[in-house]
Design a protein around this nucleic acid. Structure first.
Length: 150
DNA sequence: TAGGCCATCTGGTCCT
DNA sequence: AGGACCAGATGGCCTA
């Protein structure tokens, strides 16, 4: 049995010219019109291809996000909406944990939470600039050690 | 079989 | 002008 979302290519009919273009072909200047519709057809197919590639990139990003967030039912692929929801919750949870580790007060309101999150992001970005991309764990360890020491 | 999820096509709008 | 982005439409696959 095919897994969900993995299937053979659809047998959708390719894009066809609007009827008006065919009617116009019998009129004077039809050669130009014909090449225009042909050009349009080519451009449409090209933009379909680009759109497909764009959606594939988007799906790759979703897959990367799925792999970045822990979840319970590992045998079931998370849907896109589930992935986004879990990711949001995961970020919130991590924020709470890190703020706790660094000895900050937990935010009491949504606006405080947002302010804390942006402070955290700012701090993290600064750290990335100084230390390089692969040092998140080092960063977290430093925060942990700091909170232990203080 | 209905409903959820998805891939693809398409035309409109925005951006470079 | 052409590409990127977006949202609506359409139809296929899967599960309860």
């Amino acid at each position: 049995m095919k897994s969900k979302g993995k299937r053979a290519k659809h047998t959708r009919q390719p894009w066809t010219e609007p009827e008006a273009d065919f009617q116009l072909e019998t009129e004077p200047g039809r050669k130009r019109l014909h090449s225009n519709t042909k050009e349009r057809n080519v451009r449409r197919l090209e933009s379909n291809e680009r759109e497909r590639q764009r959606m594939h990139k988007l799906n790759n990003a979703f897959q990367a996000l799925r792999e970045a967030i822990p979840h319970v039912k590992t045998e079931k692929k998370l849907s896109k909406i589930e992935t986004l929801t879990l990711a949001k919750n995961y970020i919130k949870a991590l924020t709470t944990i890190i703020l706790g580790m660094s000895g900050s007060c937990l935010p009491h309101s949504e606006s405080q939470a947002q302010a804390s999150a942006s402070r955290l992001l700012q701090c993290y970005q600064q750290h990335l600039e100084e230390e390089g991309e692969e040092s998140l764990s080092k960063y977290l360890t430093q925060i942990h050690n700091f909170s232990q020491g203080s």
